[in-house]
Amino acid sequence: MSKPAAASRSSYPHFLAITTRWMDNDVYGHVNNVVYYSYFDTVVNEYLIRAGVLDFERGETIGLVVETHCNYFAPLVFPERVEAGLRVTRLGTSSVRYEVGLFKEGSDEAAAHGHFVHVYVDRVTRRPVSLPDALREALEPIRVVTGTAAD
């Protein structure tokens, strides 16, 4: 299995600047791999909240992460700013595949690229539900058609 190439900035229609923190670095002097997933979560949820389609306290529908993956290409370190690019590459009946590129501020090539899949479920029963129309509409502007899941 070969590693995909790093994605470019132009592959992502939405960006969020994230300030690294001292605690993000590990003993090897770079951002620890588990923190990258926190950045993924941050850019996705920021987008959903600003679009008005995520009410994490009272919403009837919630997204549960059922799959994650990340490829690392270059280290990120404190005190760099990270620019997280976001796109949607699949809108299913009850699931969404979000892809995130993490860029050193001003860099055109991703330091990391990954994805996670949300399955949307009823908050109470935890059974899958169809994506609400408002969510589908909010995701359409960042939807990108790719040749492969890692493009």
Rank of each mutant, 00 (worst) to 15 (best):
H113A: 06
H115C: 06
E99T: 12
D133E: 15
F103I: 05
V100S: 14
D122K: 10
D108N: 13
A134Q: 14
E105D: 15
V117Q: 06
D133C: 06
E105V: 02
R97F: 00
A110Y: 08
V100C: 09
S130T: 13
R97Q: 14
R97N: 11
R123F: 10
R126E: 14
A134D: 15
H118I: 06
K104N: 10
R127A: 15
T125L: 10
A110D: 13
V129H: 04
V119S: 12
P132T: 04
V121L: 11
L102F: 01
V121K: 07
P128E: 02
G106C: 00
P132I: 03
V117I: 14
S95L: 10
E99M: 07
H113Q: 10
S130V: 11
L102C: 07
D122E: 11
V96K: 08
V119C: 13
E99P: 01
V117Y: 02
V117C: 02
A134P: 09
V119F: 11
H115I: 00
L102G: 03
Y98V: 03
A134T: 14
A134I: 11
H113K: 11
E109T: 15
R126A: 14
A111P: 00
R123I: 08
A111G: 03
E105R: 06
V124F: 01
R126V: 14
Y98I: 01
H118E: 04
V100N: 02
S130D: 13
F116P: 04
P128R: 01
R127L: 13
A110T: 14
G114A: 04
S107H: 15
V124T: 14
F116W: 13
E105H: 07
V100M: 07
A112Y: 11
A134W: 10
L102T: 03
G101I: 02
G106K: 09
S95H: 12
S130F: 07
E99S: 07
